[in-house]
Computed example of a mutant assay.
Amino acid sequence: MADHFADFGFPDTDLARQSLDWAYEHESATLANHSVRTYLFGRAAGEAGGLRPGAAYDDELLFLACVLHDAGLTPEGDGDQRFEVDGADTAEAFLRGRGLALDRARVVWESIALHTSVGIAGRMRPEIALLHAGAGIDVTGMGAEAVPADLAERANAAFPRLDCGAELTGAITAQAVRNPAKAPLFSFPAGLLSQFHPEIAVPAWKDIAEGAWPGTA
């Protein structure tokens, strides 16, 4: 993996290397590869919009957030919250334990916690917006025109896709089936759960709203 730091211009810091090692140790190759492509595609989306790493945003923080953004889908990161928040907590604890300052670790936390929040993440600071953009480009292809064709080819060759979409969907929904608290109503995990496991009943918003404050006018 070390050669990729030079080949793709990753921020070459001890913490970046440790984080990448963590991803490949605790995640499947599919998810870890997706996390690296997320960084490459997010950085490219930023450059297409005039955002230069090191000038418009902290490239190390973007890299850390991207490579750890699916930590909530690992056994180590699987808690009782939606996977984005569990992953943010896991990443922050890992980085703080290795000396990252609280304010910098908080940027990583926010980036990971918000990375599926369409309409919100894109309006936040660049590290948050570019993780969101990169993950979306990699999983859905939306916005892929921002990624140079040669970079996309090199990234997909060096970090193979390995049926990424299906594995991500399966990991998120499997957690939610085991623990419904991980798919709160109207969240991204809940949306996937309703599509892939329609047999699982979810509360109707109408019933929730109409049942609020019983006995009051």
Rank of each mutant, 00 (worst) to 15 (best):
L62M: 05
L64S: 01
L64Y: 00
V67F: 04
V67E: 02
L68R: 01
D70K: 14
A71K: 08
G72A: 05
G72I: 03
L73I: 11
T74F: 12
P75V: 12
P75R: 09
P75L: 08
P75A: 14
E76Y: 15
E76A: 12
D78M: 14
D80F: 09
Q81I: 14
R82I: 12
R82S: 11
R82N: 10
R82C: 08
V85F: 07
D86I: 03
D86E: 09
G87Y: 10
G87R: 06
D89M: 14
D89E: 10
T90H: 14
T90S: 14
E92T: 13
L95G: 01
R96G: 05
R96F: 06
G97L: 05
G99R: 08
L100C: 04
A101V: 07
L102M: 13
L102I: 13
L102F: 14
D103S: 13
D103G: 09
A105I: 13
V107L: 03
V108H: 00
W109T: 03
W109K: 00
W109E: 04
E110A: 02
E110S: 00
S111N: 01
S111H: 00
A113S: 12
A113M: 07
H115V: 05
H115C: 05
T116V: 06
S117I: 03
G119I: 09
A121G: 04
A121P: 08
A121T: 02
G122A: 07
G122D: 11
R123E: 12
R123Y: 15
R123T: 12
M124D: 09
M124P: 02
R125F: 10
P126E: 13
E127F: 05
I128G: 02
L130Q: 07
L131S: 05
L131Y: 03
H132W: 08
H132I: 04
A133Y: 06
G134A: 00
G134Q: 00
I137Y: 07
I137T: 06
I137P: 07
D138I: 10
D138N: 13
V139C: 03
T140E: 10
T140Y: 05
T140C: 04
T140M: 08
G141T: 05
G141M: 07
G141L: 06
M142F: 14
G143R: 13
G143E: 15
A144C: 06
P148G: 04
P148H: 01
A149L: 07
D150C: 03
L151V: 01
L151I: 03
A152P: 01
A152K: 05
E153K: 11
E153R: 08
R154E: 12
R154K: 13
A155S: 02
N156Q: 04
A157I: 07
A158T: 08
F159D: 13
L162W: 05
D163A: 11
C164N: 14
C164E: 15
C164L: 15
C164K: 15
G165A: 11
G165R: 09
E167T: 02
E167K: 01
L168T: 03
T169R: 12
T169Y: 11
G170L: 08
